[in-house]
C-alpha cells in the first residue's frame, strides 16, 4: 500500500456559474496513508477543493482521481442526526455501508471505543459536548470504512483545550488505521501540528502556493518548538499571499 497514490489532482479548475475562478490549475497528489493539511485564508477555495475530492461537486476543468471506494467526510459541524443516540448515529453509517443488522451494534460500540466514547453510546447529540460530538462524527466517518478521510475544519468550533485533545486523538486514530487524511484548516498551528505535509493555497483563485514536509511527526504538540518554528515560516508565506490581494 505504502508509496501508492491515493488522490491525484491534475490541472483542476473550478468556477461556480459565471463567477470568478475559485480554483485554478491545482495539482496535488496524496500518497496512501499520508496526512496532508490544506491550509489557506478565507476564500481560498479549500472547502471547495474538499467537496470536489469528496465527489459532492464537479470540477470545471481538470481531473481528480480518488479510490473507487470513495471518501468519508467530516464537517465543521458534527451534523449528527439529533433523533439518534451516538451509537445509532454510527450504526446509520454502517447500515448505509451495507453491514448486516446483527453486526452493527458491536461494530458501532467498538468504533465509539476507538474515540473513547464507549460510555456515551446511549446519549443523544444534545447531551454531548462539542468535542464529544465531533468524536462521534469521527467514529461515524471511520464506520464508512473508506481509505480516504476528508476533514473540513472539523475542530474549528471547539475550545483550545478540547481541540488539543482531539488533535492527539486524531493522530492516534490515523496511526492505528492507516487512513489517508486530507485535513482542511485555516489554523496554521493546527496544520503544523497535525500534517506530514502542509499545502498552502493562495486565495482568489486558489492555487498551490507552497508545500512543507515534516520529517518527524511523532511526539508533536501544539506548543512544541518545531511546530512553532514551522508555523512562523508558513505564516510568513501566508501573509505574503494575502498581501498580494491588497494590490
Amino acid at each position: 500500500m505504502s508509496g501508492q497514490t491515493a488522490i491525484r489532482i491534475e490541472q483542476l479548475g473550478k468556477r461556480f456559474g459565471a463567477g470568478p475562478l475559485v480554483l485554478d490549475d491545482v495539482n496535488l497528489s496524496v500518497g496512501a496513508g499520508e496526512f496532508v493539511c490544506l491550509l489557506g485564508a478565507s476564500g481560498c477555495g479549500k472547502s471547495t477543493l474538499l467537496n470536489l475530492i469528496a465527489g459532492l461537486d464537479r470540477p470545471t476543468t481538470g481531473t481528480i482521481d480518488v479510490p473507487a471506494e470513495g471518501a468519508a467526510v467530516m464537517f465543521q459541524e458534527s451534523a449528527l442526526m439529533p433523533w439518534l443516540t451516538a451509537r445509532q448515529n454510527v450504526e446509520l453509517a454502517l447500515r448505509l455501508r451495507g453491514v448486516a443488522r446483527s453486526a452493527r451494534r458491536g461494530e458501532a460500540l467498538e468504533l465509539l471505543d476507538t474515540v473513547n466514547l464507549a460510555d456515551a453510546a446511549e446519549k443523544r447529540p444534545h447531551e454531548l459536548s462539542g468535542g464529544m460530538r465531533q468524536r462521534v462524527a469521527l467514529a461515524r466517518a471511520l464506520a464508512q470504512d473508506r481509505p480516504v478521510l476528508l476533514m473540513d475544519e472539523p475542530f474549528a468550533a471547539l475550545d483550545a483545550i478540547t481541540r488539543d485533545l482531539l488533535h492527539e486523538e486524531l493522530e492516534r486514530v490515523w496511526r492505528r488505521t492507516g487512513r489517508t487524511i486530507v485535513f482542511v484548516t485555516h489554523n496554521v498551528r493546527e496544520a503544523a501540528r497535525l500534517g506530514q505535509r502542509v499545502v498552502l493555497l493562495s486565495s482568489r483563485p486558489g492555487r498551490v502556493a507552497g508545500e512543507w514536509r515534516i520529517a518527524e511527526t511523532s511526539g508533536r504538540r501544539i506548543e512544541s518548538p518545531e511546530v512553532a518554528a514551522l508555523s512562523i515560516e508558513i505564516t510568513e508565506q501566508l501573509r505574503k499571499e494575502i498581501r498580494r490581494n491588497a494590490a
Binding site: G3, T5, L28, S29, E34, R197, V208, G210, E211
Partner: peptide, 13 residues
C-alpha cells in the same frame, strides 16, 4: 514516487 510529483505540483517553497 508521489513525492516527485508533489514537488512539481505547484510552487514548492
Amino acid at each position: 514516487m508521489p513525492h516527485d510529483e508533489n514537488s512539481t505540483a505547484g510552487r514548492v517553497a
